[in-house]
């Protein structure tokens, strides 16, 4: 079976010489949900921006369902950006159109989807995140949790094969956090979730990898990884006070 995501030997350095990725290898099977953990500055965001060809220029290779990310090839890059849906950390960076529906339509419209099909995509995506009744509202009038859900919908409307979520639970109140978890679990896509929220990773992702100093330094079932206190401490990962991963029964 073709891997949903296959990264081999990826390196990258920023123009100022700072090295951000140091030879990353990572493979995700279709339908897998994987958490990408790591301290600040580990290169997580840099890695995410490589998945859809926004950053490139170093060594190594990224493949999405067998299609290599080739930044020079406009057509291939459009297809890559359809396959990889990135939900950025701050929904305000993602939402910029005057209404929720138009924002959700932006992605598929860039892919050339028009008319009834476009409408259908918008409805489908908003239904998936439970925001259909807000379709004509102004994004900035929604609550933060609602905006994050719309941000997820803007990406779902492109019918991605991989959903990449950057800190999906940050700034969410507990109820919004749970609602978003339910939405993510209900989606039939491969998920790569960048997060500092370890309980959230445990709840949503059977597998976790740790990125530190530009390398994947651990790759294991999430419960096992979180229970390995020494390894966690070595990479500046800390569980919330009183949280015991072994006490949680995975659903």
């Amino acid at each position: 079976m073709t891997a949903a995501l296959k990264i081999t030997g990826l390196t990258f350095a920023y123009p100022d010489g700072r090295e951000a990725l140091h030879g990353v290898d990572l493979t995700l099977a279709p339908g897998e949900r994987v958490a990408l953990l790591g301290p600040n500055g580990a290169g997580k965001t840099t890695l995410v921006l490589h998945l859809n060809g926004i950053l490139h220029g170093g060594a190594g290779r990224v493949e999405i369902s067998g299609l290599p990310v080739t930044p020079g090839d406009r057509k291939a890059i459009t297809e890559i950006r359809r396959r990889v849906g990135v939900v950025f950390q701050d929904p305000d960076d993602q939402l910029f159109m005057p209404t929720v529906a138009e924002d959700v339509a932006f992605g598929p419209a860039n892919l050339g989807v028009r008319g009834d099909e476009l409408d259908h995509r918008v409805t489908e995506a908003l239904t998936a995140v439970g925001m259909l009744e807000h379709r004509d509202q102004i994004p900035h009038h929604l609550s933060f949790g609602q905006r994050r859900r719309v941000a997820v919908a803007t990406v779902l409307a492109m019918r991605p094969e991989i959903l990449v979520l950057d800190e999906p639970s940050s700034n969410l109140d507990p109820a919004s956090r749970r609602e978003l978890a339910e939405i993510i679990m209900s989606l039939p896509v491969t998920v790569l979730m960048v997060t500092h929220d370890l309980p959230y990773a445990l709840e949503l992702c059977p597998r976790s990898v740790i990125l530190d100093a530009g390398r994947i330094v651990a790759d294991a079932p999430t419960g096992e990884l979180l229970a390995d206190g020494d390894r966690m401490a070595a990479h500046r990962l800390e569980l919330p006070f009183g949280f015991d991963p072994s006490a949680i029964h995975r659903r």
């Binding site: 459009t78 950025f88 339509a105 932006f106 860039n110």
Partner: peptide, 17 residues
Amino acid sequence: RVYLAMLSRGYSGRMPS
């Protein structure tokens, strides 16, 4: 960041009409 988010959704220099 806004721009990167737009690129990620297939923006190629022209707003879809």
